[in-house]
Every structure is written in structure tokens, then in C-alpha cells.
Computed example of a mutant assay.
Amino acid sequence: MSVLSFTPHVHVRVNPILTPKPKPKPKLNKLRISSLQTFATPPPQPFFSDPFVLQLADSLPSSSQPLPLQKLRDFSSQTLLSTPWPSRDTQFPNLIFIDGFLKELVLNLSNLPDGVYLGSLLRASDRIMERVSKFIGDFKWGDLFWSINGMGAPDLGVIYVPAGCKVEIPIYLRYFSVEGGNEGSKKLPISNPRVFVLVEEGGEVGIVEEFVGKEGNACYWANPVLEVVIGGGGKVRHSYVQSQSLRAAHIKWTTVRQVNSCYCSWYCC
């Protein structure tokens, strides 16, 4: 696996001429797009807003490839130019777990559209409780770690998106592991955070999960589960960030089910 590294540079150019000149469009030397394909959905228009993305794009190889791979590169080239670098902006809605326990602190709910719920299952309205209860607990293909999480989860975080609702900003799920044993000790605290996501028909949401461990070489076991149910025409974008102790055990279940369709599951350890 090749490793790609790049160092961002910021240049400030002072123009002595008072009359401003239009800024030249950035040159994409290596990001050539050869024999563009015809797409059913027009690719997004580039707006060149992120210099780090452009620098990364310019460092990628551009040699000729077989048609399927070239088609993938062509379409990715278009979307890359209109996609900003991800951010840990604290203005995004956050749901926070500490050692598996869902905390009262849920930030910036005002940024969510009407009807969207982000919080504890125990504090959900009767309407949302009724909707999510139809799907919770009926997954039949979980393994030992899935069941351990189900037995040990102290609460359930819930993300609910009503039909036709599009959540434009991502929702962050932050998991903090605070308890931990020292190296050589027999202490291995376990946490079982669990989140259930229900996106009704035609709804859309982006979810970022971030796992942060105790500083140093603490020993602990994080055993989280994310369960997603999507109605017809719904969309869920999912990203994952893991930053934990090197001596920690991290076992992760992510399962996605489309209503009236099959299950798709990801298991990470």
C-alpha cells in the first residue's frame, strides 16, 4: 500500500497595482480528465474553495488506466473539486458518550431541521419511540460481541430523520474512553455504547463517528454498535475516525438495513 504525503503551503501575494485583477483558475496538472464519460446525473460544478484538496489532487497519479478504473477516476476527479476538506467544527450537532454512557450534553440542536430527533431513547417522544421500537432488537445475524453490547448498553442513542427530510450538516457521534487499566494490570474496563439510526423514506443524513481514548497506554475495551435502518430512497453517509490507546481493544459493529430489503453489515476489530 503506497503512502501519500503532502505538506500544505500558504502563499500570500501582494499586488502593487491598485486595480485588482481576476484570480487565475488553479492549474490541475496531474488531475487530467481524459475521455469524460456521460453520467446519468451531472457531476457537481467545481468551486475550488479548498487549497488542501487541490494540492492533494495535484499529487495524485494520472496515468492511463483500463476503462473501468479510468471511469472511476474521471468521476472522482469531478466530485473531488467540489468537496471541501472534512472539519471537526464544533458547530455541528454532537451526541456524546463517555465510557459507554450517553451524556445529557447534546450540542447545537438548533441546527437540525424540524422533526429530526437526536438524543436518548429513554427521553424520546411517544411517536419516535413507537417508530424505532419496530426495528430495535430484531437483527438476527449478530455475533458474540453484538450480543455483549446489547446486554451491556446502558442506554440507546437515537437519530431519527422523518420522511423527505434532508439534514444538510453532519451529525457527530463522539465516544470517549476515560476509564482504563495500567500496563501490566488485570483491569480492562469495557464500554458498550449503542446508537440506532432511523431514516424514513426519502430522508438524508451524514454521520461521523469519532472514538477518542485515554492518553497514554491505558488498557480498555470499546465495544460499540451502530445500527442503521433506511427507508426507500433514503441516504446515509457515514465516516469513521479512530484515535485510541495502542493497548486498547476496539471491536465495532455497523449494520445497515434498507426497509423491505436485505441487511448489510460491517464488522471491525
Results as ranks from 00 to 15, higher is better:
161 V>F: 00
79 T>C: 14
132 V>K: 02
153 A>H: 11
154 P>T: 04
233 G>T: 02
12 V>A: 10
29 N>M: 07
219 C>H: 08
79 T>V: 15
205 V>N: 04
230 I>N: 06
91 Q>D: 13
127 R>V: 14
265 S>N: 11
135 F>T: 01
248 A>T: 08
119 G>S: 05
165 C>F: 05
34 S>P: 03
169 I>K: 09
124 A>G: 01
247 R>H: 13
16 P>N: 08
173 L>K: 06
156 L>V: 12
151 M>T: 13
1 M>P: 12
95 L>K: 02
85 W>Q: 12
268 C>D: 08
46 P>V: 00
14 V>W: 06
118 L>C: 08
198 L>G: 02
233 G>K: 02
71 K>R: 15
237 R>H: 12
200 E>A: 05
113 P>E: 08
197 V>M: 02
56 L>P: 09
72 L>C: 11
140 K>F: 08
159 I>K: 07
90 T>Y: 06
264 C>E: 14
65 Q>L: 15
214 K>E: 07
200 E>G: 01
23 K>Y: 07
68 P>F: 07
187 K>I: 11
74 D>N: 15
115 G>Q: 03
78 Q>H: 15
93 P>H: 05
78 Q>G: 02
48 F>D: 13
219 C>M: 13
168 E>G: 04
25 K>H: 09
32 R>W: 05
103 K>A: 07
73 R>A: 09
133 S>G: 13
263 Y>M: 05
220 Y>F: 12
219 C>Q: 15
20 P>F: 01
163 A>W: 04
29 N>C: 01
251 I>D: 05
178 V>P: 01
153 A>Q: 14
131 R>P: 04
26 P>F: 04
114 D>Q: 13
242 Q>M: 06
58 D>P: 04
262 C>W: 13
196 F>I: 06
172 Y>P: 02
208 V>R: 06
93 P>G: 02
59 S>K: 12
259 V>K: 09
231 G>Q: 02
167 V>F: 06
98 I>C: 06
131 R>N: 08
101 F>W: 10
114 D>L: 09
51 P>D: 11
42 P>L: 10
64 S>E: 13
68 P>T: 08
189 P>Y: 01
257 R>Q: 14
221 W>E: 02
41 T>S: 12
216 G>Y: 07
139 F>M: 03
65 Q>I: 06
146 W>Y: 15
255 T>Y: 01
244 Q>R: 09
49 S>I: 02
23 K>N: 09
220 Y>I: 06
80 L>G: 08
84 P>T: 11
214 K>Y: 03
